[in-house]
Design a protein around this nucleic acid. Structure first.
Lengths: 330, 330
DNA sequence: CTGTTAGCGCTTTCAG
DNA sequence: CTGAAAGCGCTAACAG
């Protein structure tokens, strides 16, 4: 591989000059810049990112922290979209992305984690699916050693940004739409997700707000994002419920299936907008989230932080849609 | 952050000595080793991987190349298992993993790809789901610039290893088992996957071998791993077929569904052993593959290559199992 | 067994 | 505007 030195020789300039044109610094005349660029092209030179990192202390390396605690396909599909959205965007910013899983770090203590990340020269982290229980993450954030972006978890300060959709508003809207479409709903049964997930509270606030505004009766239970738990909850509460509002599509599916088995009808709405397989003919309202776009936005935020700007909270658009589950994929 | 110099000072030895104990090189006395280790502990020193990489020319950075051409959940679930298996194993070897997608590279020309990988100091690649059409990958392999491991694609030379299960044998076995369980199968309809995928030919060889051995009539069609295409093929050929053998679970599902809609019975077998949702009550034979384990094996192979050993082909075990698709996840 | 020293390829002052 | 030179933190000969 050609090095910066070769380029300098070829162009008949100093190494430092080459470095300047490489990094787009000012103070290089048009002509020399051209000479250098030509030499670069001729030698097919690509700068060595490792050397640049060592020298500049800027590595441009960021880690994606995925929470894979659940093994359902659904969660995986979302994570996949997160991944590809982030990687795509990182490429634009010439950031270098490595993927880590919560499970790999959770068992270590915080200083071990810090050491690991430092030794890997990781400057920034994007955290997906954090919950209140993840104390180690809170400590990581408080250490102030890394720029961090949390997805769907409300943090922001000097070096932390967060990216999310307005969970409360989204939950409010999708439930309201469904209720308006179905006359006579008086008693809402709300199946929330995991108790300590950050998204859960926002969504609960949304449904509470709606219930209050419309003067409806509201019962809340936790379904842990599990189809079977939602199913059981629906089975137990169907008689005293007019509408089921679920914090995920998967749970909504569970509810729809048991209702259909019981041969009763109740309106149901979900959350996520993920394409699910194998649920032919059913349709329902849900909140469509573009996970790849959310992830791309997270990378943008991280890039901002790395450039020295301070953290902020960024809310992305969501969309309430009616989806019909198809039995055919591809 | 403490540097190797600080450690050397603290321990009262030379930098090179510290480096030696760090890398487990021989030729350091027990006592000095202890002194050094103590200093390391006291200073909470973690070596700077970037500096080590620059100096040693060994970066320990490898890339996972995932082929996401299909957007089905199924493929994603498999890829997720590949990912986590590889990342887990890479951690053991202190390899540093980055994830790339075919789609990001396919549009570039080969020398651009090489430049990109080189600039990222990537030494090795693991390629998942390669097909015969991926000429750019072949060129990458021929360049000899990277150590590579192909998963489910038959390559091996000085710097290339491959890891796979015996597709032919697996296809043979699962089909045979199904046929033996169902008396009177004379006419096999085989639904293969994608025409140019490397796994496809091996599986076809397997079913051909079986047909010949058992003196059965065999028809082969390509279903492109698509549920709907398999469905249509089954619809068109059901009357002149005694058993449907499919090159993926997803296609097998498609076949089972149309058969059930037509209200006819034919034995069906699949391939992959992936848990699918939403197909209650059905059961069938399939080939269980542990994708995480396959991926871990690929990382092991890559590690071997990086250590200077020559490439080889490694065949992993598979298992023919009967699975029942469940309607409940979690 | 231990220490000295010359880089790895690049960035970054600081003179000219 | 351009170039010389001092590192970044570590590895790897090579002396001692």
């Amino acid at each position: 591989m050609a090095s910066i030195k070769d380029v300098a020789n070829r162009a008949g300039v100093a190494i430092s000059t080459v470095s300047k044109v490489l990094n787009g610094y000012p103070g290089v005349s048009r002509e020399t810049k051209d000479k250098v660029n030509q030499a670069i092209a001729e030698l097919k030179f690509t700068p060595n990112a490792v050397a640049a990192a060592l020298s500049s202390k800027r590595t441009g390396r960021v880690a994606l922290l995925l929470n894979l605690s659940d093994k359902t396909q659904i969660v995986d599909a979302i994570n996949m979209q997160y991944l590809s959205g982030a990687i795509q965007k990182a490429l634009e910013f010439k950031l270098d992305v490595i993927t880590l899983f919560f499970s790999m770090l959770r068992e270590k203590n915080v200083s071990e984690i810090i050491n690991y990340l430092k030794s890997q020269s990781i400057e920034g982290l994007i955290v997906y699916g954090m919950s209140r229980e993840d104390q180690w993450l809170t400590e990581l954030m408080e250490s102030g050693l890394f720029k961090m972006v949390t997805v769907d978890a409300p943090f922001s300060d000097e070096h932390i940004s967060s990216v999310w959709i307005d969970q409360q508003k989204a939950q409010y809207e999708v439930a309201k739409k469904t209720i308006l479409e179905n006359k006579g709903c008086k008693r809402i049964f709300y199946i929330a997700g995991k108790k300590n997930a950050f998204i859960t509270q926002g969504r609960i606030d949304g449904i509470k707000q709606l219930a209050q505004e419309m003067g409806l009766e509201l019962t809340i239970a936790y379904g842990e994002f599990s189809e079977s738990q939602a199913r059981e909850l629906a089975f137990a509460h169907e008689k005293k419920t007019d509408i089921f509002v679920c914090a995920s599509d998967l749970m909504a599916i569970g509810v729809m299936r048991i209702l259909s088995e019981l041969d009763v009808f109740r309106p149901v709405c979900g959350f996520d907008g993920i394409t699910l397989m194998g649920y032919a003919g059913k349709q329902m309202n849900t909140v469509r989230q573009d996970f790849a776009a959310i992830s791309a936005a997270a990378v943008e935020e991280l890039q901002r932080l790395l450039e020295g700007e301070r953290g902020r909270s960024r809310v992305l658009a969501h969309e309430v849609v009616q989806i019909r589950y198809q039995d055919v994929i591809g």
